[in-house]
Amino acid sequence: MKPSRTDRFGIVAVLAYAGPIALASLLACGSNNPAEPQGAATTAMAVAPTALRWQSFQGVDLPVAQEGPGRIDSVVATGFDRGPAGAALAAIHSTVRMSIATDSQWPLVGQRMLATGRGRDRWATARAQISITAPIATGAPKVLGYTITRYVLDAADVEIYSIHPDDSVIRNSTRVIWQDDDWRLLVPEDPMASSVTAVDLPPAEMVALAQR
């Protein structure tokens, strides 16, 4: 399978972040409705990850920082800080890894990086119906940064911005929840809930991730 530009972070769309953008409708924010952020958590949402570096996964560069992941075991990234930056990094890693993991890799990503529930089950069913056997060779998107629109200790809504070779910018709206002592991506139950949107430019308030 050779994904097109808009597929890259949506490579299993109906799967989650993956699949043609028309399919990339399975990763909108979940149905949970956490309380509004309070106190120091609100200001911390704009603090960038520290000691940032980049590590490639299947042809896409992913950010690694002091806030996580603390451990990368083959295809699985775990050990994210519970604060806002850790939540954002977890959202990025989970979304990208679930989207471009190969046929032999995606079950581990699903088991260890996605929140349990009907959304994950539906994603797994859809993912099993397509085949990804190789990394992205050319034209991989670049993660620019993120905004956190809502954060509490147990849940965070993260909008991830990426740029593609034709200079188009894509926003992917995600939600992570704190489950089993780590942040896990919450895949929505509604397969028609769209999460991927083309935008003119990233917002001014985006937490920019310094490129290599």
Rank of each mutant, 00 (worst) to 15 (best):
A48S: 12
P49R: 08
P49L: 03
T50V: 00
T50D: 06
Q55T: 11
F57N: 06
Q58M: 09
G59C: 03
V60T: 12
D61M: 15
L62D: 14
L62P: 10
P63A: 11
P63F: 10
V64M: 10
Q66C: 02
E67M: 06
E67D: 06
G70F: 01
G70H: 04
I72M: 12
I72N: 01
D73Q: 05
D73T: 00
S74W: 06
V75Y: 04
A77S: 04
A77P: 02
T78D: 00
T78Y: 02
D81N: 12
D81E: 15
R82S: 09
G83C: 02
P84F: 03
A87C: 08
A87L: 13
L89Q: 15
H93S: 04
S94V: 11
S94Y: 06
S94N: 13
T95N: 09
M98P: 02
S99V: 06
S99A: 15
I100D: 14
I100Q: 14
I100N: 10
I100P: 10
I100H: 14
A101I: 03
T102P: 04
T102D: 14
T102C: 00
D103R: 05
D103V: 02
D103C: 05
S104T: 10
S104H: 08
S104M: 09
Q105C: 05
Q105Y: 02
L108H: 12
L108W: 07
G110S: 05
G110K: 01
R112F: 14
R112K: 14
M113P: 03
L114R: 01
L114E: 12
A115T: 09
G117V: 10
G117E: 01
G117R: 13
R118A: 09
R118V: 14
G119Q: 01
R120Y: 00
R120T: 07
R120F: 02
D121N: 11
D121A: 09
D121I: 08
A124S: 03
